[in-house]
Design a protein around this nucleic acid. Structure first.
Length: 481
RNA sequence: CGGGAUGUAGCGCAGCCUGGUAGCGCACCUGCUUGGGGUGCAGGUGGUCGCCGGUUCAAAUCCGGCCAUCCCGACCA
């Protein structure tokens, strides 16, 4: 539309949601395209956010009794082939290494699309006795999946993630672990990213290749499509059978352990961007904002900016640091204040602190909230405590706002016409009955693009199938990313 | 892989119909200016016009082929 769009202007969110998303990712300095299709460069600002997410997720994973380790990037073809469903699910999207050191390899090596195969093979050597269980290992790694359609963060050829792989003596323990990690993901999404999610079990058609059952958290994006933000799989004994993992139990019989795996990736970062961002760019929840506060000093009309304002700004910087706030002083004198406002808004910094000669006279500063754009004239005395209080309010406010959006875009429908109507207009989550047949699920997808995102936890709520009218249970539908 | 569109400076685009010195905005560089919401002015750097071939005195422009990207399908935990 507009010819003279500058680099920093962002497509309105309501006008073209996917273009808006790409604008934010590229212009807010999160990422750039690499030379290989679908391979993304995560730039320093994006990586700083990822590191904060990582730190918090890692804390939660360790708090639930897990430890970190690292397994190889390369997986021999024969290892991958041991679990039939697993290889069928992943083989088409594997990158294969067939030449090494200039010579054709005897056996192709896959670049890991996920690490069940290599990790279970190692576990087979490590486990002998019930005393070796449980094994509760997590790894932070990169994986490669050769996707046909890619989008920065949401679906990339290579991505960063954590994947947990556990072994347990009993089915109950395995199931308990699966649900425990689902809860870790749910609470991380809501408490750290301020991103509300549905959680529940996947239908068979959406299950992980080789799993007994898959659980997931699903977030709702601004265009009414759902994003799977984390999965936790109860693998049953499928993998311990396939990889020959056995242990001698207390009752002196040989048994197969039960295994689980669970993962979250850089996709969560993309989800967070879509969840909170607005027409000015990113809006970061304070807990994962690399800078929670940016100080923009205002130069005096006449005289030296160094003498009048900067020393005070440095004092404020030190005070906020001492209060545990991640803060940056933007003292670049080649940019004007207005430019800096727009710049940091685009990068989603939760609070901007303006400090000029007028403020210094009154011993105050101006705080501006990124989420509400509210201006707050704040005394410099007790600033650290006030800022921390505001950051918590912003964190809570973002979650509340996002919850209201999900609530307003979740529709309980009882007729097929209504279902189609909702999918044709506002989309979002649809709560409707389903008879449990995969064929019906496929038909619904064919006609509306909606798939079952999750079956809610707890006892199934009976409801007639929205498509066939047969007896069924309530499940959540949505069009997926 | 099927349907549609687009490839011209780092980004966004005009020029093509009607062939004749490759342009504009942003970004970038220099200088001054300005500074509480993207300052203003002046000067400047940067492009084998996606690739290959054809027509022509002459091709960004016309013709043919190829390649790439995007959208809609298909495919995809």
């Amino acid at each position: 539309m507009e010819k003279d769009r500058t680099l920093k202007e962002i497509t309105p969110k309501s006008q073209d949601y996917s273009q808006w998303y790409l604008d934010v990712v590229l212009k807010a300095d999160l990422a750039d395209y690499g030379p290989v299709k679908g391979c993304m460069v995560i730039k320093p600002y994006g990586y700083a956010i990822w590191e904060l997410m990582q730190r918090e997720m890692d804390r939660r994973i360790k708090e639930t009794g897990h430890v970190n380790a690292y397994f190889p990037l390369f997986i021999p073809k024969s290892y991958l082939e041991k679990e039939k469903e697993h290889v069928e699910g992943f083989s088409p999207e594997c990158a294969w290494v067939t030449i090494g050191g200039g010579e054709e390899l005897d056996e192709p090596i896959a670049v890991r699309p996920t690490s069940e195969a290599i990790i279970c093979s190692m576990y087979a050597k490590w486990v002998q006795s019930w005393r070796d269980l449980p094994i509760l290992i997590n790894q932070w790694a990169n994986v490669v999946r050769w996707e046909k359609v890619t989008r920065p963060f949401l679906r990339t050829t290579e991505f960063l993630w954590q994947e947990g792989h556990t072994l347990h003596a009993t089915a109950e323990e395995g199931r308990e672990e699966t649900l425990k990690m689902l809860e870790v993901y749910r609470s991380f999404a809501e408490e750290t990213l301020a991103m509300p999610v549905l959680h529940g079990q996947k239908s068979d058609s959406e299950k992980f290749a080789g799993a007994a059952s898959t659980f997931a958290i699903e977030a709702l994006m601004g265009d009414g499509k759902a994003l799977q933000a984390g999965t936790s799989h109860d693998l049953g004994q499928h993998f311990s059978e396939a990889y020959g993992i056995e242990f001698l139990d207390k009752d002196q019989t040989r048994k197969r352990p039960w295994s689980t795996s669970w993962g979250t990736s850089t996709r969560m970062l993309g989800g967070m961007v879509m969840c909170h961002g607005d027409d000015s760019g990113l809006v970061l929840p304070p807990r994962i904002a690399p800078y929670q506060v940016v100080i923009v000093p205002i130069p005096p009309r006449k005289g030296s900016w160094d003498e009048a304002v900067l020393p005070k700004a440095r004092e404020v910087l030190a005070a906020l640091r001492a209060a545990g706030v991640r803060v940056r002083l933007d003292d670049r004198d080649q940019f004007q204040p207005g430019y800096k406002y727009a710049d940091w808004e685009m990068r989603g910094v939760p609070l901007r602190l303006e400090l000029g000669p007028k403020d210094i006279e009154k011993d105050q500063c101006v705080l501006v909230r990124r989420d509400t754009r509210e201006k707050l004239f704040t005394p410099l005395a007790g600033l650290g405590a006030r800022v921390n209080e505001l950051l918590e309010q912003i964190q809570a406010g973002l979650l509340e706002r996002a919850r209201a959006f999900v609530a307003g875009n979740t529709t309980r429908v009882s007729s097929w016409d209504e279902f189609k109507q909702v999918m044709a207009t506002k989309r979002g989550f649809i709560l409707a009955g389903w008879c449990g047949e995969a064929e019906v699920e496929a038909k619904i997808k064919e006609e509306t693009k909606a798939t079952i995102r999750v079956m809610p936890m707890g006892d199934p709520q009976p409801a007639p199938c929205v498509y066939t009218g047969k007896p069924g249970r309530l499940v959540y539908f949505a069009q997926a990313y």
